[in-house]
Design a protein around this nucleic acid. Structure first.
Lengths: 196, 196
DNA sequence: TGTACATCAGTGAACGCGCGTTCACTGATGTAC
DNA sequence: TGTACATCAGTGAACGCGCGTTCACTGATGTAC
């Protein structure tokens, strides 16, 4: 493999930032810690990335990529649309449980006032919904593209909400098994309601 | 009415902090701005509240109180459990739309590392779920208290998730009417699934 | 192969600012006699 | 009613630190002849 110095720098910093977020969460990510762990000097980070926010976005982009693969594999593992929907939500839950900090970072990160999230990254977020749309299109064949997208988004948000509040609340600490049961029960109700 | 000086100080600071959060959001709340708007000096804030976090919690506590009243009135306005569930979610949506920043602050605020949210405030959060439990108990009479609480929480989280992602995403900007329709459609599916 | 020069990668001290919190102080209010 | 003293409410300059970002500099690598 051939990798220029500047590619290597970007890669190392990306990996370092990722492992710091994985271990300690986005909220306590510090430029100095990334630099120190990476083996590079403080200033090098700004040779590779415009600023810290863009490095975080690079990490989130990577996380989204991995999540997307997981969801695609989940869909591919099932023969019918109904079980595809179920396995999707369980796969999403597993990903969140296994990568809590990286997963939170996807939704917690926000740009400083005045700065905008780059378009390509917004699209990566939107792409996730597409994984839900495929099986949903089978279940609801008479919806047009736009209505389908909206519906997929709604289901995604609901599942996301259930997982998020359950995981962050020490108050009702469900283990993954119980949470997965609850999630499946919920989804089953909803999908049964769709048929009726 | 009789109000001691220290009660007045707390009240004014609370009202000021609330109106600043309402206007600009929790993320840009600054001690100096609160002090300036309140008419008191910087140091006075620390005579009334231990620190900024406790002032924020006081604001959130107030918001939760108002939200609870709204939900209670919604439940009271409907004769049967099914329409109570529906009106609950619409009332929740309306509250979020009308008080976006105050509503976000409820879930965005987090204590600095090492500090804990006071117990009484955690309970206020949990109390919200109770409003969902009442109508849900009618719809699912054979669940025991614990299972009911879990189920209520799940539904609450789902509705919350749908609203949250829809409101914060400029990407798919639904107006309240469209979002309300989507929410009701979703809930209807779910509740229909419950019966079947 | 060697020399002179140009470009590139990497460095880290220093900058600059935002911001929560403190605390010694002041003026107002209350109390005792 | 007046005086001396004690307590209380309120003040804001100063503290202290964390942290993202910059930039003049250095040593390494590449190029030309």
């Amino acid at each position: 493999v051939s990798e220029t110095k500047s590619e290597k720098l970007k890669r190392i910093l990306l990996e370092t930032a990722e492992s710091r977020i994985r271990a300690h969460g986005l909220a306590s990510l510090r430029v100095r810690d990334v630099a120190k762990d990476s083996g590079y000097a403080l200033g090098s980070l700004y040779n590779a990335y415009k600023d810290l926010d863009l490095l975080v976005i690079a990490v989130n982009s990577r996380t989204l990529g991995r999540l997307k693969v997981v969801l695609q594999e989940a869909v591919a593992s099932q023969p019918d649309a109904l079980s595809q929907m179920k396995v999707l939500s369980v796969a999403y839950l597993s990903f969140a449980v296994e990568n809590p900090h990286l997963w939170s970072a996807l939704f917690d990160h926000q740009m400083p006032e005045g700065a905008e999230v780059p378009q390509w990254h917004l699209e990566e977020h939107a792409d996730l919904i597409a994984e839900v749309m495929t099986p949903l299109a089978v279940l609801m064949p008479d919806l047009d593209e736009a209505a389908l997208a909206l519906r997929a988004r709604t289901i995604f948000s609901a599942v996301h909400g259930i997982i998020k509040l359950s995981l962050e609340d020490r108050f009702v600490a469900l283990d993954q098994r119980a949470l997965s049961d609850e999630l499946l029960g919920f989804l089953e109700c909803y999908l049964k309601g769709l048929e009726a």
